[in-house]
Design a protein around this nucleic acid. Structure first.
Length: 638
RNA sequence: GCCGAUGUAGCUCAGCUGGUAGAGCAGGCGAUUCGUAAUCGCCAGGUCAGGAGUUCGAAUCUCCUCAUCGGCUCCA
């Protein structure tokens, strides 16, 4: 009988008879790890504990607490859910059911609609399956057998999946728990009893294979954990996210509204929201001027011919609004680049003029599909902190690097982490292969020169060029697309932009489109959720509120108010005839950074006693001392 | 755009199988002058998203439109 050599995580190497199961190996090494092991990694592949090993290799344990182990657990729960759904309802076809970031889903084809009550029923059946502790059994059968099997079961989606496998795949694996069988690559947890806690969350539509031309299936989302405590914690985070929802805070803090009567996807900024926005925009203008950008502004509508010339008419028309003026078709701008092209073309440019950096807080309109609109995050009118940089090919690298630095600085100022992605040529695009390659290389090289880590997103570029996307991460670890740098060799060509080089000849400049915060609306939405409405002092629409204890202190309150206003502090007064506790509570729920309580003691000493948003009382101090503190807190941002 | 759910006072929500709309908070008025997360009383407030239909009668049933929510597809 042949033997195999297995190296274990502690570095030791042991010999086993060929065909030994992963569980046996694990048990012989660390018996105590077996109960919490969901699978192993052997020779680079994740395998079930029940799998037999036939060759030498290194074995790692995949514990239920690890990220990978949790994914396997959730994938197994999705199988249990599929079984429960088929046990509970007649005529349901299954399709696919993977684990995802925070849980799992399974897509079903079913004539009826699943209701929340149905989910409760499914959960109950799932609990039974978990209690019965059925083991997951794996077996391999030929592709033909599998097709016959699933055809017999009426599982047309599974049949399609198998038929679409590459021709060299001869066998497929099946997993069963009890009498339920599913096509699956695996691995799975040893048995259903290992499922500690799960919950089905919601039902949603999803196209078969993610293609909008295909049938819409019903997707049931759920999540699961090794323990109930972890599930509870996860549900608590979901609740926290709900409380931070910018749509809710936008109303509670009186920042903005989206009004049905005005139109879907159109944000209306209230005074405090507009103040916040203005603070952000002022910061932008200052930072751009500092970095050698010129502020410009283009019109809201431009003739359709210009959009034809730029390629937008052919590639972006369904997202654009048009209007007719005196028999002329005009396109409402969905991007800001066109006017910037015309500014460049307004005179002959020398290589000495380059780079030219045109910056515009440009308001654009895009006809987004009704179903994608979402508070401030996805709207139909928004303002980008947009710039177009025209430079020589030689300057491209340093321009991209400067922008990446600018983004890094902005993210630090606003308190975000971020990830970087490089997106390459999409199917529907314009321009030559050579240009695309050059542009993609330029972006990639700059990322490397700046020593930034990044992922590649194939086919995700804009129609006119590749791009670098910066995905910002908020306090709840959710990612948002904000900054982007897009390389464009096409538009300068289409508009015949030139500059005179040192050789006296005309040359074609290259262009970068870029945004730093992206859309101001979305960025504000992200900011609101990131800070849960409790903005840092420099961003707070109201930085301090003055609260009198009784009417007696109003005259001094007015004096303090005047002094703060003169010192450019954004201050409100609350001199209402209410108890102090009431005023404090209200200011607290408005998340105002400082409350200045004024009672007899303060009037007497001509002082203020600031109470911070976190409840900490700073004790009595002179008004100037308080002004100084606020100024210090804002200093690095102004 | 697609699938599903939802739409009642400024906000959060009650309103059973069709029988003339209710609470808390917010708002107004009055009382209270009070020290760090809710003082008390009174008052006002709704074409039940909009439209059409069924019915003696519709917030409630049906259809259409709009909007919102959860996803999918798309995206700053």
């Amino acid at each position: 009988m042949s033997e195999i050599r297995v190296s274990l995580p502690d570095g030791s190497v042991k010999t086993y008879p060929a065909g030994v199961t992963a569980r046996q190996v694990l048990a012989s090494w660390r018996e105590d790890l077996v109960p919490s092991a969901v699978a192993v990694r052997f020779g680079g592949n994740a395998l079930d504990l029940s799998r037999s090993l036939h060759e030498d290799g290194a074995l790692e344990v995949i514990g239920i607490a690890s990220r990978e182990g949790l994914g396997i657990l959730r994938h197994s729960i999705s199988h249990v859910m599929a079984q429960a759904v088929q046990d509970s309802f007649q005529g349901v076809q299954v399709s696919i059911g993977p684990s995802i970031e925070d849980g799992f889903y399974y897509d079903f084809d079913y004539a009826e609609t699943f209701t929340p009550e149905d989910l409760a029923k499914v959960e109950a059946r799932m609990a039974e399956i978990v209690r019965s502790d059925k083991s997951f059994e794996r077996r391999e059968i030929s592709r033909e057998e599998a097709i016959t099997l699933f055809q017999k079961k009426g599982e047309n989606y599974k049949v399609e999946l198998i038929q679409d496998l590459p021709p060299d795949v001869k066998t497929v694996s099946l997993y069963s728990q009890g009498d339920y069988v599913d096509l699956c690559r695996g691995p799975h947890i040893p048995s259903t009893g290992m499922i500690g806690a799960f919950k089905l969350l919601n039902v949603a539509g999803a196209y078969w294979r993610g293609d909008e031309h295909n049938k819409m299936l019903q997707r049931i989302y759920g999540t699961g954990f090794a323990t109930q405590e972890e599930l509870d914690e996860h549900l608590r985070v979901l609740e926290e996210a709900r409380k931070r929802d910018h749509r809710r805070l936008g109303r509670e803090l009186d920042l903005f509204q989206v009004n049905e009567e005005a139109g879907a996807g159109l944000a209306i900024f209230h005074p405090k929201g507009m103040l916040l926005r203005t603070i952000i925009e002022d910061w932008e203008r200052k930072e751009h001027l500092k970095r050698g950008y010129d502020m410009v502004m283009g019109p809201q509508i431009l003739k359709a011919d210009l959009w034809r010339r730029s390629g937008h008419f052919d590639h972006y028309r369904e997202n654009m609004y048009f209007t007719e003026v005196e028999n002329q078709l005009y396109g409402i701008k969905p991007m800001n680049c066109l006017a910037h092209m015309l500014i460049y073309k307004s005179k002959v440019r020398s290589y000495r003029d380059l780079p030219l950096r045109y910056f515009e807080l440009g308001t654009v309109h895009r006809h987004e599909k009704a179903g994608v609109l979402h508070g401030l995050m996805r709207v139909r009118q928004f303002t980008q902190d947009d710039a177009h940089i025209l430079c020589t090919p030689e300057q491209l690298n340093s321009e991209i690097r400067d922008i990446a630095d600018f983004v890094a600085y902005a993210m630090k100022i606003f308190g975000f982490d971020y990830e970087v992605e490089l997106s390459t040529r999409p199917a529907d695009s314009i321009g030559s292969d050579a240009d695309w390659e050059m542009a993609t290389n330029a972006l990639e090289q700059a990322l490397k020169d700046n020593r930034m880590t990044y992922d590649v997103n194939p086919g995700d570029g804009a129609f006119y060029g590749p791009k670098i996307d910066f995905k910002l991460k908020d306090a709840l670890k959710r990612k948002w697309q904000c900054a982007t740098i897009q390389c464009d060799f096409t538009l300068p060509d289409r508009f015949d932009l030139t500059y005179v080089g040192p050789d006296g000849e005309r040359h074609r400049p290259v262009m970068l489109h870029r945004v730093i915060l992206g859309a101001i609306e979305r960025f504000m939405g992200v900011l609101i959720e990131h800070y849960a409405g409790a903005f840092p002092v420099w961003l707070s629409p109201v930085q301090a509120v003055i609260q009198t204890v009784t009417d007696k202190q109003i005259p001094f309150g007015e004096e303090v108010f005047r002094r703060l206003v003169e010192a450019d502090i954004r201050v409100e007064k609350d001199f209402r005839n209410e108890k102090l506790g009431y005023k404090v509570r209200e200011a607290q729920s408005q998340k105002i950074p400082f409350m200045l309580v004024i009672g007899d003691r303060e009037v007497e000493g001509r002082k203020v006693s600031p109470r911070q948003r976190d409840g900490k009382n700073l004790g009595p101090m002179d008004v100037d001392a308080f002004i100084g503190q606020v100024k210090d807190l804002c200093a690095r941002y102004q």
